[in-house]
Write a protein that binds this DNA or RNA. Structure first.
Lengths: 341, 341
DNA sequence: ATGCTCATTACAAACGTTTGCATCAGAATT
DNA sequence: AATTCTGATGCAAACGTTTGTAATGAGCAT
């Protein structure tokens, strides 16, 4: 903190009045004379006075800051979420501290400690892929700091939650493939300790069952990034597994699969259709363009922040927890449209 | 700020000693008896005491927080920069507040106000595409808050700066195209109010001139995103401008160009070679893969933060400003390799 | 006994605000 | 002239720390 910043005391000294008068003058308190108000406000402007948010936080026991724990901001989805969070928070006069867990449990624990130490008024969390222990989140609750999970939630944890209807979205995506003529659809799945991983798989299975299609264990492969998708595809081709579609847990995985198939001379979508999840920057630029589920990250950010702010603002924080389920839209592009559909 | 959090006073009351003794005991001050230290530390642990960072900031007039103003975190380059910043900052015990300007001047001004109000110890800035007035940065300097520009700097502004050697990188990229057989290379340029826009163009021109190649005004087109690239390419094809290479100011633009060319039946790289800039997630997944300049975003983040922390830590902050120029590497992939090279 | 040192602890002020209450001068009322 | 009222301002405490200095009491030498 620089020593150069002007304080209320500086103004008071210069005007030979007390700090309390300056404070009240700045807030347009009725007790203060018009004359003094003008003098104070003019000098404040002249000296470029900025209220010290730190002192305010201490006094009011409220920092007007919310903390965000996010796995990795490099993903289009997560950075859209942040934009949504920031917009709502700033409009409400709140600042945002963003902490990346980098998908590491340890980092996540440190993040929560940092946010608590900085006395944020509330915390938004999307858990890391590694996280299996939730004590650090309990600590947040013990300290009575409002907590909202978004996207990657902890099932059964007593807190507000905002999620996408992953099951439904995965179901619709898979059904779209079936309607397009796919009969043997593989699923490149995410980690099964994350609820979203489970739900997307469930949706996929539901669609297959509903259509009376075969579901094979070997069609469900844990692969959730470019490289794992590449290896999985190579494996499939090696074993001559006969598939005509891939529903991937995210876009990077879908693109890894598409890429590898094409390299090996398999035509997409004619021979193998592909659908991704979590529509991002990448989907439009592949050839064919990738059909994907738009998760509305920005909206998720705004909704989660609104829920958090509501709890922060309310005097009685003990009203029941809310679980908000957002819709996701299937964006159909070239990668899933076989000739015959 | 929740009322549930334990303070030094709580510990003092419980142990019937004074807060100052508790404070010293926690810091292992030699004046305090072993007995008291043990008692204090045990109780602190039991109550899960977390020092109040806000109170500390006020007392020490130093928040141990640095502020970051960044145009848009959705870009791979910028989010890598953030990772670099966070890693160095956290290692030094500093928190990071990230503010997005969303490429808007107004938002950038608000961002600086927010950061100053929160008494950050230093600020890292990459200016928005819109920014042409620098008064808000001067205000930072007036308040004696250390300021480091990264990537998008303000030429001539008295501050530390970290940039990539854009001119050299653009020069090398263009020379690579020439060596690969290109003779008529267009440049899809960035905004010329940003130094990086100018320098990349300069590097391009330098390579052409050095090789004794023609430079045409109509080959330099201001296009710095997917859509503008698409339009520019359509225009080129319409006018039957005879080009055999495109050097684009960033990857999104390069991919937009590649995409449109391919849609129109122009083969890449055989007929038109393409090179992008600021190697990101996208470059690997196009077909052909995109040759691009790796700007080392993570490294830029670490270097900028180190320079900032150095100035924050030093008692005399008036030593000369530093301009660090980082190397950028050309990553050659398929999009630039013509058959005959 | 008196004075000294030493170890241990407490007190008080400070960081920049806010806010309930006291103060004060002058005006209005009696 | 004495009292009450009113409008404007100042004082002091508080938020949770840290830290210079004062205080306390024991042990020891004189």
């Amino acid at each position: 903190m620089s020593s150069g910043l002007v304080t209320i005391k500086d103004i008071a000294r210069e005007l030979k009045i007390s700090p309390s008068t300056v404070s009240r003058a700045l807030k347009n308190h009725p007790d203060i004379s018009e004359e003094t108000k003008v003098a104070v406000n003019e000098l404040a402007k002249k000296l470029n006075y900025q209220p010290n948010a730190v002192a305010l936080s201490l006094k009011q026991r409220r920092s007007n800051t919310i903390g965000v724990i996010i796995p990795e901001i490099v993903h289009y989805f997560f950075s859209s979420v942040i934009s949504g969070i920031e917009d709502v928070a700033y409009d409400a006069g709140f600042n945002v501290i963003i902490c990346q867990s980098n998908e590491k449990y340890d980092r996540e624990v440190v993040n929560t400690r940092t946010l608590l130490a900085n006395r944020v008024d509330g915390i938004l969390v999307s858990i890391s892929k590694e996280t299996r222990n939730y004590d650090h989140f309990r600590k947040i609750k013990e300290n009575e700091v409002p907590l909202v999970f978004y996207d990657r939630i902890v099932p059964g944890f007593e807190a507000d939650q905002v999620i996408v209807d992953d099951l439904e979205a995965a179901y619709r995506a898979t059904r779209h493939m079936i309607e397009g003529g796919c009969r043997k659809i593989a699923h490149f799945a995410g980690p099964q300790n994350l609820l979203i991983g489970q739900l997307r798989k469930e949706g996929y299975l539901k669609a297959l069952r509903e259509a009376g299609l075969e579901t094979k264990k070997e069609w469900i492969i844990e692969a959730d990034n470019f490289e794992k998708a590449r290896l999985a595809v190579l494996n499939i081709l090696d074993e001559k597994s006969d598939i005509d579609g891939i529903f991937a847990v995210n876009d990077t995985t879908a693109i890894g699969a598409m890429h590898t198939l094409q390299k090996k001379g398999v035509r997409v979508p004619e021979q193998v259709a592909i659908v991704g999840f979590s529509d991002g920057r990448l989907s439009g630029i592949t050839d064919p363009a990738l059909t994907s589920v738009d998760q509305h990250g920005y909206e998720m950010g705004t909704v989660a922040t609104e829920i958090l702010l509501k709890r922060i603002m309310s005097s009685n924080k003990n009203y029941p927890f809310e679980t908000r389920i957002l819709n996701a839209d299937l964006i159909v592009r070239g990668s899933s449209i076989k000739e015959n559909s």
